[in-house]
Nucleic acid binder design. Structure first.
Length: 460
RNA sequence: GGCCUGAUGGCGGAGUGGUUACGCAGCGGACUGCAAAUCCGUGCACCCGAGUUCGAUUCUCGGUCAGGCCUCCA
């Protein structure tokens, strides 16, 4: 079975073949850390985490190098720092920490590298200098600009011929540009803004060159996979590629380009009680990270995803179903620790997570109804399959009772015990009264042959 | 204006030239003191028009609608 990935460059699914199976490289554009990140910003985090995990499964954990950068030089960061009267590092450190914590709650593994623009300045300056030497960039009025006419392939990734872009340009062209499409590699800082020394005067780098330099420094060019949101295809990735190719004489830059679709918020408002759930940080306070991760992967990564509270509720219930099966199969000893073939096949088909999830439900059904050997195998495959993409890693008890503190837990256990006693005495009115009390605590009681178990109906 | 996607049941969302996944919700039944969970069964869809074909939801063309990008937004 081979991994097939949709490449934005060729606009088709192709067999993925890394340059070196011992050293598979992937780079994904990360956040600009000036505030808590929007949920949509976490879609690539989760999507490419799935790809990272799949690649590790296929090529070995040590064979995959994944870099996800952090943009910590930016106008918005400057504005935020100025507003708070602090250095930009205070702002970027704070929001980077929050971002990483939220990503972890969403089940994302830490990338192998997390380069930061401010710590890559030497490489950025060096790359700009090389571009000037190669005749692909020029200095003008304190700026350094990339000369888009120096790169014949410019526009190929996004499918925009240069002349059309010029015709469609809706932004005023700075007077120092040779061509309207030329973009900034280095620019002077405004008074009060952070600046770095360079041969072209003190200033700061343009956004695109940061990524090219960070890739070259952390992974080396060319890389196997470059990922990011669909909105980055143009101009960011187009420009990155132009820079990387012209600075290194390497024609490839990245062997595959993967882009995830956007989250749509439609018209529906998220439940008011949830507050501003557009921020992942707030959303994570209202829903388990695993449910949000599930919701983000429920559709194909390239398709737009309708994001609303119903989607999240359904995601949580889907996980209830799977965790419920595991909980009921507590005594089943898992046999086999490999992901199911059908599950892997789905993932290897350009990360068809929806299909892969369907396989998880199939395994859960087998676990509920199969013969003993079948159950043991289904449990092993379910755990291994789901675990491969970061699901069902919690104890089922924790999933269903995780939000309960000790005091409440002992109170619930007391009520359950009292109800059991009433039921043994066939005092149904009393048993129902107690159940009503539990329901008020959002506790769902499930009577079984071995006594009653319970779980939280909604997690808070 | 240019370029590019997409349109599947009540909701979400896969996939396929002939029998349409899966989950949630619904309905009937089993189980239960009653429930819940689970199990069994079941209803419900492939935007419109034309074409190709023995046969199209799936391919082609047109239309309609929706969304995205067009210089720093995942």
């Amino acid at each position: 079975m081979t991994l097939r990935l949709h490449d934005t460059m060729t606009r088709e699914k192709r067999d993925f073949v890394p340059a070196d199976p011992q050293r598979v490289t992937m780079y994904v554009c990360g956040p600009t850390v000036y505030n808590f990140a929007h949920v949509g910003n976490f879609r690539p985090v989760v999507v490419f985490d799935v790809l990272f995990r799949l690649l590790r499964h296929l090529y070995g954990e040590d064979a995959v190098l994944y870099a996800a950068n952090v943009t910590d030089v930016d106008d918005k960061i400057n504005a935020k720092a100025a507003e708070e009267g602090v250095a930009i590092g205070v702002v970027t450190d704070r929001y980077l920490a929050a971002y990483n914590a939220d990503a972890a709650k969403l089940g994302a593994l830490p990338p192998t590298f997390q380069p930061r623009a401010t710590r890559t300045m030497d490489a950025i300056v060096a790359m700009i200098a090389r571009l000037i030497d190669n005749g692909a960039a020029y200095a003008a009025e304190g700026h350094v600009l990339f000369d888009t006419t120096a790169y014949a392939d410019y526009g190929k990734l996004s499918g925009r011929p240069l002349d059309e872009m010029i015709a469609g340009a809706r932004v005023e062209v700075a007077p120092y540009k040779r061509n309207p499409a030329d973009f900034v590699l280095w620019k002077p800082s405004k008074p009060g803004e952070p600046l770095w020394e360079s041969p072209w005067g003190p200033g700061r780098p343009g956004w695109h060159i940061e990524c090219s330099a960070m890739i070259e420094q952390t992974l080396g060019l060319p890389i196997d996979i470059h990922g990011g949101g669909i909105d980055l295809v143009f101009p960011h990735h187009e420009n990155e590629r132009a820079q990387g190719v012209c600075a290194t004489d390497d024609r490839t830059y990245s062997r595959f380009w993967l882009h995830n679709g956007f989250l749509n918020f439609g018209e529906e408002k998220m439940s008011k009680s949830l507050g501003n759930v557009a921020l992942a940080h707030d959303l994570l306070a209202a829903y388990p990270g695993e449910a949000i991760r599930w919701a983000l992967l429920v559709g194909h990564y390239r398709a737009p995803l309708e994001w609303n509270s119903e989607l999240l509720d359904q995601a949580r219930r889907s996980l209830d179903r799977l965790y419920g099966a595991l909980q009921r199969a507590d005594e089943v000893v898992a046999y086999a620790s490999h992901p199911a073939d059908a599950f892997l096949t789905a993932l290897e088909d350009d990360l068809n997570t929806a299909q892969a999830m369907a396989e998880l439900f199939r395994l859960a059904s087998k676990l509920e109804t199969g013969a003993p050997e079948e159950k043991a195998r289904a449990k092993g495959e379910l755990l291994a399959s789901a675990g491969l993409i970061g699901f069902l890693t919690a104890d089922p008890e924790t999933w269903f009772k995780g939000g309960v503190d000790e005091a409440l837990k002992s109170r619930i256990d007391g009520l359950i015990a009292a109800r059991d006693e009433a039921r043994r005495a066939k005092d149904w009115p009393q048993a129902d009264r107690i159940r009503a009390e539990l329901t008020a605590l959002s506790v769902e009681v499930m009577d079984g042959p071995a006594g009653a178990t319970w779980r939280l109906k909604e997690q808070v």
